[in-house]
Nucleic acid binder design. Sequence first.
DNA 1: CTTAAGAAAAGTGTCGACAATCGACCTTAT
DNA 2: ATAAGGTCGATTGTCGACACTTTTCTTAAG
Lengths: 213, 213
Amino acid sequence: MSRLIAKESLGELVADQLRRSIWKREIEFGERLIESELSEKFDVSRNTIRDALKILEYEEMVVSKPRKGTYVSQFSKADWQEIIELRSLVESFAFVKALPSLGEKQFQDLERILQDMKEKTEKQIWSDLFDLDMKFHQYVINLSGNSRVIKLYDSIQVQIRTFLLYLDKYYSSHEAFYEEQKELFDALLTKDPVVVDEKIRTHIEYVEGQFLG
Amino acid sequence: MSRLIAKESLGELVADQLRRSIWKREIEFGERLIESELSEKFDVSRNTIRDALKILEYEEMVVSKPRKGTYVSQFSKADWQEIIELRSLVESFAFVKALPSLGEKQFQDLERILQDMKEKTEKQIWSDLFDLDMKFHQYVINLSGNSRVIKLYDSIQVQIRTFLLYLDKYYSSHEAFYEEQKELFDALLTKDPVVVDEKIRTHIEYVEGQFLG
DNA sequence: CTTAAGAAAAGTGTCGACAATCGACCTTAT
DNA sequence: ATAAGGTCGATTGTCGACACTTTTCTTAAG
């Protein structure tokens, strides 16, 4: 990944921290982020903070109104629908496009991730389970080979991660979550574009849609 | 300067200027952009220039390597294929999604744009023709109602505009360009999702694909 | 000549300070 | 009591300066 080649800039580092803080709920949704405060807290210049906020803004994790300030995004149901719609579109496209690149090795890698998920399912550790889920999807997307789609998905995924954090309150069964993923894996095994496309859409709808009554 | 109207930040303003400069070929593809030079040229601080460059980077109009500098993007054929692929995906989705919102008024608006295109076609003014083409597509996309898709398309469109500027060297017939657009309009009139989806994909392929032998 | 090492120049990353703007509070006249 | 208008503190927008990295130039040895 490009991030490993070029050591992250200070701004990206701060953005990572902030993102995690949001995920951990140390920062509330809708909360206002004040540059000078953050500047002091992270012990970097306000300028660097602004860089970080711009990254988060690109990911739609924060919204900033000129001369008003920047606030942590509050996702409405309409927002989630938009995100899911976009994710579904991009992901089904990328998955189908990745099919030709799925060989022995790739399936083994994916199976390993699935295996890890099974463990985490037994241990009931939601956050790890989500991370693995994202890893699984990202792995396939990367095989699609369209760098712009990959980059786009990266930013969608940040939002998805935020969404899944909400989900754990509503989504009761770890096992069902795992089973769903397994079915997706099986769909990939068929290497049939129509099957995969169909499965992706129902998968996303199943995993995420049920929250949006 | 007395830009009292300026809702846009100084950075965005500079980004606009730079974008145009690239389109006008006042700045070459692949050229290195030096912050301090631009800072002097536009008479703003280097910090503001950095903001502008970040915007352009988001649009993929420039590429910047940490501590190395930022360069105007040089699009390879592979890049164009990626862009066209992504455009095709996003646009066919958005067009179909916009169908229910297409009423009397909307068709009239579109017809007017088409009319303008006809004029420009006769006058053989490529750049205006392209602008109208983009306006047409954007109009429909906006009706799709998914703000994330709209935002995504905005950034794709900047690249498309750059592409079309290349195209005019290879694309000889103004009339054919107009006729294609007219067919797209007719497809919309049917309000049939399958027809529209199909037409969008062939339209984009036709207009842009032929350049990529 | 070619190449390597090191000095100088150029350019980017980061910082603290000042200016412009916004929002809350207070005053005052109806 | 309330609404228009003014004042002040808080916060963002913009700037110039310095630190550090990369590139270029110089020069001397092989």
